[in-house]
Amino acid sequence: MTSSEKKILSLSVMVSLAICVPQTAHGMHIMEGYLPPAFCVFWGALCLPFLVAGVIALRKLTQNQRRSLLLLAMTGAFVFVISSLKIPSVTGSCSHMTGTGLGALLFGVPVTSVLGIIVLVFQALLLAHGGLTTLGANTFSMAVAGPLVTVGLYQIGKKLRFPKLLNVFLAAALGDLFTYCVTSLQLAIAYPSAEGGIGASFLEFLTVFAPTQLPLAIIEGILTMLVMMGLQSYAKPELALLQNRKRGLFL
């Protein structure tokens, strides 16, 4: 990382902290206009360091590892496809998956956050799905929090010597599920219930999302695992390249 890159990154961390920390008093996609402005700024600021680190990592990839760009495009495409498929669920409503697990496993969390925000902007502008004001909150849940869990679980699974495919499946599925837990939490903080406060409200939202999302999480796990299988058989050189590059924790 060059010194100017370091400067930009630490600047983004500082901005993020400055905006997020003082507001301790107040605390699948959240719909446009459904979060109070202060929360929109808060979640957006929280994503900022990841996005900046992601752009830096992407620049490095394009400079040093052009061979991995095909995989990068495919990972982005995977997020595009997966998050456009609305699937019916047992609760009688439709929802869709995130598809960010694959990116997290291959390229790390920061790069994934950039891929995720591209998809979210597309959906917010053209589909009125999610929204520009809730972009920060949705980016955080789908492209930062979920991928963090995915990468974390994958590392733990690796230590425990889980079979690789099972490990990919579990990490991607639980990452997807966690995305919706975060969404519930975001809504709960913005709308604490009158009696039970944030906790009760959180459970309320969780009961809306969780049953819908559980089967979808399993599907996402399976699909991520299948793509990984395909890549393992046909893209060995690229995978080795990605594994060899120097990576920090979660990066």
């Binding site: 699948m28 996609h29 959240i30 719909m31 459904y34 609305k86 699937i87 019916p88 669920s89 047992v90 609760t91 009688g92 409503s93 439709c94 929802s95 799905h129 999610g130 969404t183 809504l187 939202f205 809306v208 999302f209 819908t212 999302q213 089967p215 979808l216 399993i218 599907i219």
Partner: peptide, 21 residues
């Protein structure tokens, strides 16, 4: 997993879960 609910819950509306939110 994807199509099961369609047959299990005949007549359900299948609106978006964002709206449920």
């Amino acid at each position: 997993l994807a199509l099961g609910p369609l047959f299990a819950l005949r007549g359900a509306e299948f609106g978006g879960s964002d709206n449920a939110g």
